[in-house]
Design a protein around this nucleic acid. Sequence first.
DNA 1: GTGAAAGCGCTAACAC
DNA 2: GTGTTAGCGCTTTCAC
Lengths: 338, 338
Amino acid sequence: MKVTIDDVAEKAGVSKTTVSRILNGNFGHNKPETREKVLQVIKELDYQPNALAKGLKQMKTNTIGIILSNLQNSFWISVLEGVEDVCQRNGYSLMICNSNENAQLEEDHIKGLRHRQVDGIIVNATLKNRQLYETFIEENYPLVSINREIYELPIDMVLMNNIKGAKQGVEHLIDLGKMSILLMVYPVEGVSPRIDRIEGYKQALAERGIAFNEENIQIVTEGKGNAKARVMELLSGENKYDAIFSTNNQMTLEILEGIKQLGLQVPADIALLGYDETVWSMHVDPPLTTVKQPAYEMGELAAKRLIQLIESKRKLKPKTVLLEPELIIRKSCGIKEK
Amino acid sequence: MKVTIDDVAEKAGVSKTTVSRILNGNFGHNKPETREKVLQVIKELDYQPNALAKGLKQMKTNTIGIILSNLQNSFWISVLEGVEDVCQRNGYSLMICNSNENAQLEEDHIKGLRHRQVDGIIVNATLKNRQLYETFIEENYPLVSINREIYELPIDMVLMNNIKGAKQGVEHLIDLGKMSILLMVYPVEGVSPRIDRIEGYKQALAERGIAFNEENIQIVTEGKGNAKARVMELLSGENKYDAIFSTNNQMTLEILEGIKQLGLQVPADIALLGYDETVWSMHVDPPLTTVKQPAYEMGELAAKRLIQLIESKRKLKPKTVLLEPELIIRKSCGIKEK
DNA sequence: GTGAAAGCGCTAACAC
DNA sequence: GTGTTAGCGCTTTCAC
């Protein structure tokens, strides 16, 4: 039933060595007629080489793994598409795992992937398995970290410029006359994008000479509904805000809901700035001003780099790529006051 | 560098058979002390069995493949999550491919996956590779088709009840007094969800005694901007519509944009009903009434069934599961006229 | 230009 | 209860 290289060899009246050579680009410079014959038999038998056997022998599977933390966020889907496209163009398969931001799961997946002999891994690291990442480096195992900086480890990374992204956004808000900007962010815990966005926020304030108020930064626990509850609480409290900067697109939707439920208008009563561009950004009410990140490109670059690492004969020096965000201005932050 | 089962065996002073047995749940009922010893050596050496070798020997990889046609649609992401979760719970890895609705790519991916020896495949089929699907059936290779019916082939499928979904939606529109309902759909070409939604639309009309007008069904070519252009054209034309039923969530966003650009109000000037529930459905302006499909469940069921097929000793009779949609009523269709 | 044979790392008869 | 041995399907020296 299953047709193997032996079947092909026998039927073509050659040795399996010859078949193998022809399959893999003809090192031995076979005679054209042998070649023809073998190729024809392969077609006749619809022979598909067994990648497991090949992989076992060559210690290479042409498969890479990716570990993501959240599939529901469309940002990651774009990244995934970028990775997938590059894989496809280069003859690699993609194994996908979801860590859900869970360190144990991340470790299991990493081990699982290596045990399945993938040639390399792209990871949006939880950052909670430092020792594991170090092992990779020691073993010179191809690994690229996306979106999050793994601090002080010589590792390949492709990151977004989050300081600049947040800074641009906040500057825009300030230019529009906003003075009391509420920054909402999911827990930081050493995760560079969140840390950097806070930093960008602070820098913008500092450069424009606006006093920084610690209470204007609110860390909200991840989980459905939390951001909505928090924003409603905050907007009903003592502090007055004229703008909210949401650093996550799911959170943005919740904030919007909370604001509306309070009977407030965006941007008349309060401005709203979102992070990450999505299909719905321009369609919500009001159309959202957002900091757009080149997600697809990040996926592409990470995959390209990983394949480079895999296929390079010698050890490559770790490299960090920083991608630039772009501010997309719509209506949710209002227009310049006179 | 790479540690193999032989290293473990040698260091533990046993044969690799023993190690293998202990690794795989102890058939030979090893002595506790041997067991202890081996387990300890495994830990010491941080030994990871090579899944390739194991797979080659056992003809089983504990990996399944999934071929999707469009990652950008959040419907598919939910499906993917369902599949991923089930895989994880059952110790399977997931290989993901994107066919982009392209028959050639689909064929390449299917062949690629089999050549990589995946134990089974879940596919949202283009339906353009009938012969290939038949081959699977002949070979009794585990395959489950999701979302789309592969007509007249004894194959496992998990599908949505699209007739009912569309019917429910249209009935709702009719109940609200809408008489001239424009149905917009991407090209049909034998794709069951689209065919069935048209059928559901017709059934609802028929049952409520509303004359069916062929021109009220508009097939719009897939591609960014097409739906928007078309809807603007149609709404500016001679035919008057009081409702639009959009059968795809990306399309819905475009239609909404088109309507707004024309200066029309939803639902005052025209009602809009969408297919598929998304994170943004409740947040666009106005909040969208939609036909919600249990996407995550579809993924789960498909994966569970596939694993069943893989692990069953004997051939299972193909089974079709039909999942029921649910109408989520919000504001985009208006309220009942008196 | 082609073939014989060894071996990648593992499991599974079959012995003992 | 444990070991010996023969492969799984392929690539790759090394002969010829």
